[in-house]
């Protein structure tokens, strides 16, 4: 017997671009309506370490302005410090597009606060708790936001400083750092940081750590920003360059004294 085997007709699977009007133009693309779920299974454009410390009047957070594409220096003026509201600051390392998405979420929250017109704003700890849940819920969907976030702020005389990782693990401390900063900056923090530092001392400590990171983290540059959160509000510096020194003999002639080396 010719023709299809007897039995119920195969269910018709609609395709995107397929018209419901018979004979109309636009017939059957090969793309299913519900394509495979898209997940960020690896990061593309990324920012490196963010550093944060508490000091006498509040919190200082620092980061460089590089967005890398793998090991390519792709964008050199991406600002990774974000003012959430009058007393909360966010610093982001990791996937830049995910950070921009998170910024949008926080912008919506801040707008809602503004529309209430009662002068109230979410406090730093609430922003931190919110971001913890956002990142944890995305990891539960196996579609993580590929970021480590530093949240700093001051409210009612209390300083806050915390980190949230890409799978939702979070902690608070007097000094924090993401990524390479955990290995290179935090040991320096542990020996030199005090919570009662002045602003000048704090900025000097952060610049020292950023410089160490610049020398050893190939995904960093010496163009940086430092932000300050105090009871009075938030100030984010313009990007500025850190001085570096490459004329050491060991840099100029690294194989001198190593007989037989080329």
């Amino acid at each position: 017997m010719l023709g299809p085997a007897p039995g119920p007709p195969a269910a018709h699977v609609p395709y995107a671009g397929e018209s419901s009007v018979p004979g109309a133009a636009g017939h059957k693309f090969d793309v299913p309506v519900d394509g495979p779920a898209k997940h960020t299974n690896d990061p593309y454009v990324t920012g490196t370490s963010v550093l944060g410390i508490k000091y006498k009047d509040g919190v200082l957070i620092a980061a460089d302005t590089l967005a890398s594409y793998g090991s390519t220096i792709r964008y050199k003026s991406i600002e990774r410090l974000h003012k959430v509201n009058d007393h909360t600051l966010l610093g982001a390392s990791g996937e830049i597009s995910d950070y921009q998405y998170i910024s949008n979420l926080l912008e919506e929250l801040a707008t809602d606060d503004f529309n209430h017109d009662d002068g109230l704003q979410l406090n730093p700890k609430e922003i931190y708790a919110y971001l913890t849940r956002v990142l944890y819920n995305r990891r539960n969907k196996f579609d993580p936001l590929w970021n480590s976030l530093v949240i700093g702020g001051v409210k009612n005389g209390k300083s806050f400083l915390g980190v949230v990782g890409m799978i939702g693990a979070a902690y608070e401390d007097d000094h924090v750092a993401t990524g390479f900063g955990n290995h290179l900056a935090r040991p320096i923090f542990r020996s030199e940081h005090r919570p009662d530092m002045t602003e000048d001392e704090g900025v000097a400590l952060l610049e020292k750590c950023l410089r160490v990171l610049y020398y050893r983290d190939k995904q960093s540059i010496n163009k940086v920003q430092v932000a300050k959160v105090t009871e009075k509000g938030i100030e984010i510096s313009r990007p500025y360059a850190l001085a570096s020194e490459w004329s050491y003999q060991a840099f100029v002639d690294p194989t001198k004294g190593a007989e037989g080396s080329w």
Binding site: S71, W146, I167
Partner: peptide, 17 residues
């Protein structure tokens, strides 16, 4: 980056730590 095994190595993640 090409990793030590010659193929492109990408970051991976685990939902647990």
């Amino acid at each position: 980056d090409k990793g030590p095994h010659g193929h492109v190595e990408r970051p991976s993640w685990s939902p647990y730590d």
